[in-house]
Simulated scan of single mutants.
Amino acid sequence: MDCYVYYRVSGAHADAARLAVTQLFALTATRFGVVGRLQRRADASSNDIANDSATWMERYDDVGPAFVPALAQMATECGVAALADGGRHVECFVDIPSSPHPCA
């Protein structure tokens, strides 16, 4: 399962949020052996521009079911949750198995 976590960060909190995410990634690596990736939305939304914010995404690949609730706790522990304007939104996806009947 792969998890994607997106949220907005105000320009005023960007440095603090980056530090908090660095701490979060250290926790996920230590506690679960999971290395996270941090991304920023490539095209700023009109809402982001109006509010001097950016949409950030954390990405975690190949995680187990216990990771998701623990991630919320670790985000609170590191302060990331408090710096996310409007909260953190988590979505998890699994691979679709290959079709047993490929096109001819």
Rank of each mutant, 00 (worst) to 15 (best):
M1E: 07
V5Q: 01
Y6Q: 07
Y6C: 09
R8I: 00
R8M: 14
R8V: 02
S10V: 01
A12M: 04
A12Q: 08
A14Y: 00
D15T: 10
D15G: 03
A16I: 03
A17V: 01
A17I: 01
A17R: 02
A17N: 14
R18F: 11
A20M: 03
A20D: 01
V21N: 01
V21H: 08
T22M: 14
Q23P: 00
Q23H: 15
Q23D: 13
L24T: 02
F25Q: 04
T28F: 02
T30N: 12
F32W: 14
F32S: 07
F32L: 06
G33N: 07
G33H: 11
V34S: 04
G36I: 03
G36M: 01
Q39H: 09
Q39Y: 12
Q39L: 15
R41Q: 15
D43Q: 10
A44S: 11
S45L: 12
S46Y: 02
N47T: 14
N47K: 12
I49Y: 11
I49S: 14
A50C: 02
N51C: 05
T55H: 03
W56T: 05
W56K: 01
E58R: 03
Y60W: 08
Y60Q: 07
D61H: 08
A66F: 04
F67L: 10
L71P: 08
L71H: 09
A72K: 08
M74D: 10
E77T: 14
A82Q: 12
A82L: 04
L83P: 00
L83H: 00
L83W: 00
L83T: 03
A84G: 05
D85N: 06
G86I: 09
H89W: 06
C92M: 08
F93W: 15
F93S: 08
V94Q: 10
V94W: 00
I96G: 02
P100D: 09
P100I: 11
C103W: 05
A104V: 05
